[in-house]
């Protein structure tokens, strides 16, 4: 697979995916293939869920379907990140296509976890705050966020119900940090509880759901 898999690139025929995705899976790479699960509990390890560089409260994943297990090996180079690790519209025409070793390499040591969207989407983190009896609710949202290197890129984000906004939209740094801590635990818990590291059969999104 030294030629970039063009089936995962955005193109002028594609639209934003907004249908019900509950029977579909999200997939995310892990830095290793082995020891992804904690031997004591049988649950995913924290370091498996996402690497230190990533933000657990705004987690990058891909929709399993046209984007398959083999695509998790794609690793953008520094130059590749500069050019392709950017959000874009679904119908963005990628030109030039990423070039092997210039823009991307393949990491065969990567593993993955996958999670059924229906298990995590719209889950509500309903907090009781012990000190001041304040209540706080946030809802897990799965958003189609195409990137120049991957049309099938999806983000797991948190919508703060009382505030009517996403976590990243909070401008006050202190306030955002307070929410972020709690939601980081919530996000880790959802993935650890529902994600699996075994391959399985999966449904593929019908073309009318993403073609213009």
């Amino acid at each position: 697979m030294n030629l970039y898999p063009t089936e995962i690139l955005p193109c002028s025929k594609f639209k934003r995916i907004s249908c019900d995705l509950s029977p579909y899976y999200l997939i995310r790479y892990t830095s290793e293939k082995e020891n992804l699960v904690n031997a004591d509990t049988g649950k995913l390890k924290v370091e498996t869920i996402c690497s230190p560089r990533e933000h657990i409260e705004d987690l990058s994943t891909s929709l399993l379907g046209s984007y398959t297990y083999k695509h998790i090996q794609i690793e953008l180079t520094t130059l590749g990140k500069e050019s392709y690790a950017k959000y874009c519209s679904p119908d963005f025409e990628v030109d030039p296509v990423p070039i092997f070793e210039t823009h991307f390499t393949l990491d065969s040591e990567r593993g993955f976890w996958k999670v059924l969207i229906g298990k995590i989407e719209n889950q509500i983190a309903d907090f009781s705050m012990g000190n001041n009896f304040e209540l706080f609710r946030a809802q897990c949202k799965i958003l189609h966020t195409p990137m120049r290197w991957n049309y099938w890129h999806f983000s797991v984000r948190w919508f703060l119900i009382e505030k009517g906004m996403y976590l990243y939209e909070i401008h006050d740094e202190r306030e955002r940090k307070r929410f972020k801590k709690k939601l980081a635990n919530e996000a880790r818990a959802l993935i650890a509880q529902y994600a699996r590291v075994e391959k399985c059969n999966y449904p593929i999104l019908p073309t009318d759901k993403y073609l213009l």
């Binding site: 298990k119 983190a125 705050m129 959802l190 509880q193």
Partner: peptide, 12 residues
């Protein structure tokens, strides 16, 4: 597999 309400607070 059912999620229950979460909690945040001081240690006590």
């Amino acid at each position: 597999d059912d999620k229950l309400p979460s909690f945040a607070g001081d240690f006590e």
